[in-house]
């Protein structure tokens, strides 16, 4: 089965290249303070929904923050984002 990750809903970012950024969920009105390590993941999912493999490829091709991430780390991060109802898997 080919499962894809997506954001739980439309979102806004307040990012000033610090160790943390603000993530605002438009539907729920919730505001989160998140670590910069998940920023590239959420930006990538804000563009379009992706499977874990696609997401990993996308992050490794970029030369930014997410380029060194391993699959294990990525899955862990996605799971904790999922637990916080920020991303979900279809």
């Amino acid at each position: 089965m080919f499962r894809v990750w997506r954001l739980t809903g439309p979102a806004r970012f307040y990012d000033r290249s610090e160790s943390a950024f603000v993530y605002y969920q438009v539907d729920s009105g919730d505001t989160h303070l998140l670590s910069e390590t998940v920023f590239p993941i959420l930006k990538a999912l804000a563009e379009k929904q992706r499977s874990t493999t696609e997401l990993l490829d996308h992050l490794c091709q970029s030369d930014g923050l997410g380029s060194g991430v391993t699959e294990e780390q990525l899955v862990q991060q996605l799971q904790s984002l999922s637990a916080a109802a920020i991303v979900t898997q279809d």
Partner: peptide, 29 residues
């Protein structure tokens, strides 16, 4: 202090940030 962290604190200690919705987010930014 970091801006994102300051944003978060100010938002949590606002009387109407949440009521203003997305425009509250824009104003705070």
């Amino acid at each position: 202090k970091g801006r994102a962290e300051s944003f978060m604190f100010a938002a949590h200690h606002s009387f109407n940030y949440s009521l203003l919705g997305e425009s509250g987010f824009d104003s705070m930014s």
